[in-house]
Amino acid sequence: MSTSRTALILFLAAAGLFAAGCDKKPADEAGKQAKEPDKVVATVNGEKLMQSDYQNYLQLRQQQVGPIPDKDKEKQIVMDELIEKMLLAQHAISTKLDQEPEVSSLMKRVREEILVQAVKRKLLRDNPITEDDVKKRFEQEVEATHKTEYKVRHILVKDEAEAKDILAQIEKGAKFDKLAKDKSVDTQSGKNGGELGWINQGMVVPEFFNAVMAMKKGAVSAAPVKSDFGWHIIKVEDTRPLKIPAFEEFMADQRARANIQRKMQDDRIGNLVKDLKGKAKITVN
């Protein structure tokens, strides 16, 4: 690949266009392009602009700003933008901007990001997630899920001493919802008397949920509960069995299905990184 064309690709990647979606062609279109020989669509100061460059940029541009109904006009706009970017990239190289430490470092990071995305795409393409894979993961998630959900209120403050003072007031008969309105720094729930509604595992931070699981219905936490947000006084108002959907119902929920598939993809990528780390020689100064 020529230096100028490399610079063009880096230019597009730095703009968030190249790495973000260059694998999103429909399968038939990608197959058709793979079979057809690439051809030169323009030459800029002796550097070739290929049909594949044009198609990639056109697709990514359409994802960013939408297609232009007038296809001849769109073609002209895309060609003009590509040529301008090539000219700017060539000018940067001719004036040695690519050798400046800050620019060189940025280009290195962008190149790494392109390669990272390419590795991820290939890994997921070579190891597609099947419906059987999703079903197995769904069953594992169900098995690990706490089977009760809780209706709770809380009062959140930043200081432990204040939390203990509020707890002492509750023990003396002060109204929980009134204290939540007056004292809680979680203003969203505070204006509703500290009400969080029904929660289950994963909806709140682990420290909070662990405390809730240990409490009985109608109880207020015996001591303030610390989390990254501050100090919580918790009240469990009610409990009920968690309704878990059947697998077929789960698969019909597009968002839920996408979430579990994303988690599975992240796990596969994480396993590859773990394997690479295990084999690598890494020194941190």
Results as ranks from 00 to 15, higher is better:
L10N: 13
L10T: 11
L10F: 04
L10H: 09
F11C: 14
F11G: 13
L12Q: 13
L12D: 05
L12E: 15
L12M: 15
A13I: 05
A13D: 14
A13V: 07
A13M: 03
A13P: 05
A13Q: 09
A13N: 13
A14N: 15
A14Y: 15
A14C: 15
A15C: 14
A15H: 14
G16T: 07
G16Y: 07
G16S: 10
G16F: 08
G16L: 11
G16D: 11
G16E: 07
L17Q: 07
L17V: 06
F18P: 02
F18M: 04
F18A: 09
F18C: 03
F18Y: 15
A19F: 02
A19G: 09
A19H: 12
A19K: 05
A19W: 04
A19C: 09
A20E: 08
A20L: 04
A20K: 04
G21H: 00
C22S: 12
C22I: 01
C22Y: 02
C22N: 12
D23L: 00
D23T: 01
K24F: 00
K24P: 00
K24E: 00
K25S: 06
K25G: 02
K25T: 01
P26A: 05
P26K: 02
P26F: 03
P26S: 09
A27L: 14
A27R: 10
D28L: 13
D28Y: 09
D28E: 15
E29A: 10
E29G: 03
A30T: 02
A30H: 03
A30E: 08
A30I: 02
A30W: 01
G31C: 10
G31V: 05
G31W: 02
G31F: 03
G31P: 04
K32F: 14
K32R: 15
K32P: 03
K32Q: 12
K32L: 12
Q33V: 04
Q33K: 12
Q33Y: 10
Q33G: 09
Q33S: 09
A34I: 07
A34Q: 12
A34M: 13
A34H: 12
K35R: 14
K35G: 11
K35P: 08
E36A: 15
P37Y: 07
P37V: 12
D38G: 10
D38V: 08
K39S: 15
K39I: 15
K39W: 15
V40C: 09
V41M: 04
V41I: 13
V41Q: 06
T43Y: 07
T43P: 06
V44R: 10
V44S: 06
V44T: 07
V44M: 11
N45L: 14
N45Q: 15
G46E: 08
G46H: 08
E47C: 08
K48N: 08
K48H: 11
K48Y: 05
L49Q: 06
L49A: 11
L49C: 09
L49I: 14
M50F: 13
M50V: 07
M50Q: 13
M50D: 09
M50E: 13
Q51E: 14
Q51C: 10
Q51D: 14
S52V: 05
S52N: 07
S52P: 02
D53L: 00
D53G: 01
D53N: 02
D53K: 00
Y54D: 04
Y54N: 04
Y54I: 01
Y54K: 02
Y54T: 04
Q55Y: 10
Q55W: 08
Q55H: 12
Q55L: 14
N56H: 11
Y57I: 03
Y57K: 01
Y57W: 06
L58A: 06
L58I: 03
L58N: 01
L58E: 01
Q59V: 00
Q59K: 00
